[in-house]
Computed example of a mutant assay.
Amino acid sequence: MAKFLNTSATNYFLEELIKQASERLILISPFLRLNDRVKELLEDKNRLKIDIRIVYGKNDLHPDEVSWLRELDYIRTSFCKNLHAKCYLNEESAIITSLNLYEFSQINNNEMGIYLSRSDDPDLYRDTFEEAQRIIRVSDEVRMSLEKIKSEDTNASTTKPSSDENTKITSSKLAKILGLSTQDFLKKCIEKGYLQENGDKTHITEAGKNIGGEYKYSKRFGSYFIWPTDLKV
Rank of each mutant, 00 (worst) to 15 (best):
A2R: 14
A2G: 08
F4G: 07
F4E: 13
T7R: 05
Y12G: 02
Y12F: 12
Y12A: 08
E15T: 13
E15M: 11
E16V: 13
L17D: 00
Q20F: 08
A21Y: 02
E23F: 13
R24D: 10
L25C: 06
L25Q: 08
L25M: 08
I26R: 09
L27N: 06
L32R: 06
L32W: 08
L32E: 06
R33P: 04
L34N: 01
D36K: 08
V38P: 00
V38Y: 03
K39Y: 04
E40L: 14
E40W: 11
L41P: 06
L42V: 01
N46I: 04
R47V: 04
D51E: 14
D51A: 15
I52S: 15
R53T: 11
I54N: 10
I54L: 11
Y56D: 00
N59Y: 07
N59C: 08
L61A: 00
H62C: 08
P63K: 05
V66K: 04
R70N: 10
E71S: 15
L72T: 03
D73A: 14
R76E: 15
R76K: 15
T77R: 04
S78P: 05
C80R: 13
C80A: 15
K81I: 11
K81P: 07
H84S: 12
A85P: 07
A85V: 14
C87W: 10
Y88I: 01
N90G: 03
E92N: 13
L101I: 02
E103M: 08
E103L: 05
F104P: 04
F104W: 14
N108K: 05
N109K: 14
N109F: 11
E111V: 06
E111M: 07
M112N: 09
M112T: 12
I114N: 02
Y115W: 15
R118H: 11
S119A: 12
D121W: 03
P122A: 12
P122L: 13
D127E: 12
D127S: 12
T128E: 11
T128P: 07
E131G: 05
R134Q: 10
R134G: 06
I135F: 09
I136H: 04
V138Y: 09
V138F: 09
R143W: 14
S145Q: 03
E147Q: 12
K148A: 15
E152G: 15
T154L: 11
N155M: 12
A156M: 13
A156D: 14
S157D: 11
T159D: 13
T159A: 12
S162H: 06
T167C: 06
K168W: 06
S171T: 05
S171C: 05
K173N: 10
L174P: 00
A175N: 02
L180G: 02
F185V: 01
G193M: 00
Y194P: 01
D200M: 07
D200V: 12
T202V: 12
H203F: 04
H203E: 03
I204R: 00
I204K: 00
K209H: 09
N210S: 14
I211F: 03
G212S: 01
E214G: 01
Y215W: 10
K216F: 01
Y217P: 01
Y217F: 05
S218N: 06
R220G: 08
R220T: 10
F221I: 06
G222Y: 08
Y224C: 01
F225R: 00
I226G: 00
P228T: 05
D230R: 07
D230V: 03
L231E: 00
L231Y: 02
